[in-house]
Design a protein around this nucleic acid. Structure first.
Length: 113
DNA sequence: AGTATGACGTCTC
DNA sequence: AGAGACGCCATAC
């Protein structure tokens, strides 16, 4: 398979789809889980490509500060905040309140095993 | 084909 | 302690 580019792009999609409802994670957390400590940018960029994926809750992925940096890439800049609020997450000034409280890390998956 | 930029994060000065 | 620059891999022009 020469064109089988299972980049960590696909890995990111899998992890993002595994994010439990009402929980959020950060780009760095995913990158760290995949082993890319500095590849946080790629995680976010993968989200940009997430338009090719049907079930990518990109609204559950925010930056390290819990800020909805990518909200502008959604259907509407308010869609991201709306989706998060629907899951019980409060947002203020595009920032998640009690971010660490809703923070979820893919590492917990293996840790729970 | 090469350059520039990007939904971030960490290191260094 | 605050500000600036770099790194990561891929896509776009």
């Amino acid at each position: 398979m020469t064109k089988n580019k299972e980049n960590y792009f696909d890995q990111v999609y899998q992890v993002v789809k595994l994010i439990p409802k009402g929980r959020v994670t950060s780009y760095g957390a995913i990158a760290n889980y995949l082993g890319l400590k500095s590849g946080a940018r790629m995680v976010g960029y993968a989200m940009n490509s997430s338009h090719s994926q049907p079930d990518i809750p990109a609204h559950r992925v925010v930056n390290r500060a819990g800020v909805l940096t990518g909200k502008h890439h959604f259907e509407t800049p308010f869609k991201m905040q709306e989706l998060l609020e629907q899951e019980g997450i409060k947002i203020e000034k595009d920032k998640i309140i009690a971010f660490e409280q809703h923070f979820w890390d893919p590492i917990e998956l293996e840790k729970t095993l």
